[in-house]
């Protein structure tokens, strides 16, 4: 068997505008292209390569997402056995919240093919730009919303908190794309143990369509259940307070606070 080659790329959020030169090069040279993107990006990909196949039809209402993803992986991997160079293009960053991209890489490598992932611009990257958030300033934690709610996570309310895909809250069978406000209420109650009841939560959506502005809707934590979520919504909670210096760690290091030189970003977060 001649080993195949799998290149997994991201197309970013803005159709075409976020497509890296690296991704364009790979897309142009591939024997087959499989993709999950919007229509404008699909047209752009077709300008680069005539052999583009959309994987959107792997989804169906009532079909479990994991079955859809397994089908995507099967279709991406099939031409590799003929020694083809396959390019799989996912919107955003192919390695950020994209199970089938990582799974395709794992399975391709296990079958003896060459498989490489190339980065793209994710929704989180757009969030950093649109909300003016630098993850270095406070630290930044990122969780899948349902996973965060169901597990007893230890997180730090003095750092930024990003909760992805709140639209899945309450989707027990993993086959729907609508949330249950009751689950959002429970999420808000859990968060209220560490944040003020009216702590601002931003419902964020990156601008996809060229004429769109990003969605930056602020909702108090105790009214989060009233917010509307789409598949591309993300929740952002700013820190509740600046972090406290650890006297115990300073002592272990044999230094005092007066000896420290704080960076501009550390002074900024102290207000």
């Amino acid at each position: 068997m001649v080993p195949g080659r799998l290149s997994v790329v991201g197309t970013g959020i803005r159709p075409g505008g976020h497509l890296t030169r690296e991704a364009q090069h790979l897309l142009r040279g591939a024997d087959r292209v499989f993709t999950v993107v919007d229509g404008l990006t699909l047209d752009r990909l077709r300008e680069l390569n005539a052999r583009v196949e959309s994987l959107q039809d792997a989804y169906a209402v009532g079909r479990r997402r994991d079955d859809s993803y397994a089908e995507m992986v099967r279709r991406i991997l099939a031409p590799l056995d003929e020694g083809a160079h396959v390019c799989a293009a996912f919107y955003g960053h192919p390695g950020v919240f994209v199970w089938p991209a990582h799974e395709a890489i794992r399975q391709a490598r296990a079958a003896g093919h060459r498989a490489v992932m190339y980065p793209g611009i994710s929704a989180e990257d757009c969030l950093f730009a649109d909300l003016g958030l630098d993850p270095a300033l406070h630290g930044c934690q990122s969780f899948e919303a349902t996973d965060f709610l169901l597990h007893a996570r230890r997180f730090d309310p003095t750092a930024a908190l990003i909760l992805w895909q709140p639209v899945t809250l309450g989707d027990l069978r993993r086959d729907a794309f609508e949330h249950d406000p009751e689950w959002v209420k429970v999420l808000a109650e859990v968060l209220a143990a560490d944040y003020p009841a009216d702590h601002p939560v931003t419902v964020y959506e990156a601008a996809v369509f060229p004429l769109d502005e990003p969605r930056r809707e602020q909702v108090p934590l105790n009214r989060l259940h009233e917010a509307r979520f789409s598949q591309v919504s993300t929740l952002y909670l700013p820190p509740a307070a600046p972090p406290a210096l650890s006297a115990e760690r300073l002592e272990r290091l044999g230094i005092s606070e007066s000896e420290l030189t704080f960076g501009a970003y550390q002074l900024h977060r102290r207000g």
Partner: peptide, 17 residues
């Protein structure tokens, strides 16, 4: 317009993990 351009969110499924 988004519908005509093929990027209507309501008609597209996005990967959610």
């Amino acid at each position: 317009l988004a519908d005509e351009a093929g990027i209507d969110h309501n008609k597209l499924q996005f990967i959610i993990i």
